[in-house]
């Protein structure tokens, strides 16, 4: 038995081949990278961004906080998120209420069938 082979019922997936492929691709990427510009130096004018003449924002300020990540995603799904967040009331009565509700629903499903 090939221990690196994973049978998935309808086919198989070989980890070793995947790892080897990933290594080859990695080597290729490194090789490509080495062919790049060698005169590039850090902390000179070469690396300074040009923002229409405005001074560069300091790195600490330019870090995007966690609340602002995926802003567009949550904004687009506002209709989905609003009731969902409202559902998580944090109230103990509701916690037990949900259990009883699910019991009732399963009772209806199993009782009918």
């Amino acid at each position: 038995m090939n221990i690196a082979l994973l049978e998935t019922g309808s086919g198989y997936w070989n980890t070793l081949i995947w790892v080897v492929t990933a290594l080859i691709i990695g080597v290729c990427v490194l090789w490509l990278r080495n062919r790049g510009e060698s005169r590039y130096k850090k902390d000179t004018d070469q690396t300074k961004p040009f923002l229409s003449g405005n001074p560069e924002v300091s790195k600490e300020d330019s870090h995007v906080g966690a609340s602002h990540l995926y802003w567009g995603f949550t904004e687009a799904l506002k209709n989905y998120y609003e009731p969902l967040v409202k559902m998580h009331t944090g109230n103990i009565n509701d916690y037990s209420g949900w259990i009883v509700l699910v019991m009732a629903i399963i009772f209806i499903i199993i009782g009918v069938s």
């Binding site: 559902m87 998580h88 944090g90 509701d94 916690y95 949900w98 259990i99 509700l101 699910v102 019991m103 399963i106 009772f107 199993i110």
Partner: peptide, 20 residues
């Protein structure tokens, strides 16, 4: 069965009894 499935699924943390 109803009681056991519900409460054990709750303890496993399945929606909609996952709030804890």
């Amino acid at each position: 069965l109803i009681l056991l499935v519900t409460v054990l699924a709750m303890k496993a943390g399945s929606v909609p009894m996952h709030m804890w």
